[in-house]
């Protein structure tokens, strides 16, 4: 970041918030700075101020910038031991509830959403579950809703699924055609897709499980605190919160509301 950027990036983020109501003002600055620089290069702008001028009053340009600013990385059953802990330690507790609500916050293109849906089906809970899949990116939500992934990625997904303690092959859940794996629409029968921002929107519903993995890493500590408080308030008592492998509540002020449930796998329980 140039010293110019120290002024111009916050200015850009404020302008985006005012005009487009997307709030990146409390994102982690180190990685956001890289993404702004990449957007600047790819969108033909010399400076961040040029970029701000370009997106002002230009929805198409803003939409392009938004793609750069939002990170869309996801895999099915990413970190299989996390999903194994869900299946083996959390599902037995969930099965005592007459109905379930599970929220995948920051669902990106849906890979983790389908991972949960598949586990819940295998464990006989999907029919009495409602899954909420939210993201700030409409394009990511469209892809999540479609449930179509490149067949090249499916070998890794299958291996992760197996390592998560699967009861059958992943191929039970998709049909392959033209280099694509099309996931069974019945998996999303009880899924509600919705545009929701952990930065600016409010409490969602009373959940038994919230999964928010590798989303908080993009937030600064102020926004992390806000987001964790929002998730705390969206969980029922004894509800579960799952984070990414390298995310911890230890560095946020909300940690007292939670106890570690499966510390190595970053599953927390509201207390």
């Amino acid at each position: 970041m140039s010293s110019q950027d120290e002024i111009e990036i916050p200015h850009l983020l404020e302008a985006i918030y005012q005009e487009y109501h997307q709030d990146f003002r409390h994102y982690s600055m180190a990685s956001l700075t890289r993404r702004v620089a990449l957007a600047r290069d790819q969108m033909g702008c010399q400076t961040t101020a040029d970029l701000e001028r370009l997106v002002s009053g230009n929805v198409d340009a803003f939409t392009r910038l938004f793609q750069f600013l939002t990170v869309q990385v996801s895999d099915m059953f990413r970190d299989p031991s996390f999903f194994r802990a869900f299946r083996q330690e959390i599902v037995p507790i969930l099965s005592t509830y007459p109905s379930l609500k599970l929220w995948v916050a920051g669902c990106s293109t849906g890979e983790e959403l389908y991972s949960y849906a598949i586990i819940l089906r295998e464990e006989g809970l999907l029919d009495r579950s409602i899954l909420y899949a939210t993201d700030i990116s409409p394009e990511a939500l469209r892809k999540a809703q479609a449930g179509v992934y490149s067949i090249d990625r499916v070998a890794a997904f299958s291996e992760n699924h197996r390592l998560s303690g699967a009861k059958c092959s992943l191929s039970e859940y998709y049909t392959a055609s033209h280099g694509l794996a099309v996931f069974d629409r019945s998996l999303r029968k009880n899924v509600v897709f919705s545009d929701h921002s952990l930065a600016t929107d409010s409490v969602f519903a009373e959940m038994q499980v919230i999964s928010c993995r590798n989303v908080l890493i993009y937030f600064d500590r102020t926004l992390q605190y806000h987001a964790v408080a929002l998730m705390r308030d969206s969980l029922c008592r004894r509800g579960f919160l799952g984070l990414g492998t390298r995310e911890s509540l230890a560095f946020t002020k909300s940690s007292s509301a939670f106890k570690e449930f499966s510390p190595a796998e970053r599953w927390y329980q509201k207390w």
Binding site: S28, A30, S31, R34, R35, V71, V73, N214, I217, Y218, R221, R246, F251
Partner: peptide, 8 residues
């Protein structure tokens, strides 16, 4: 403080 990212 450290930050992590899953950027490309």
């Amino acid at each position: 403080t450290f930050s992590l990212s899953l950027d490309t």
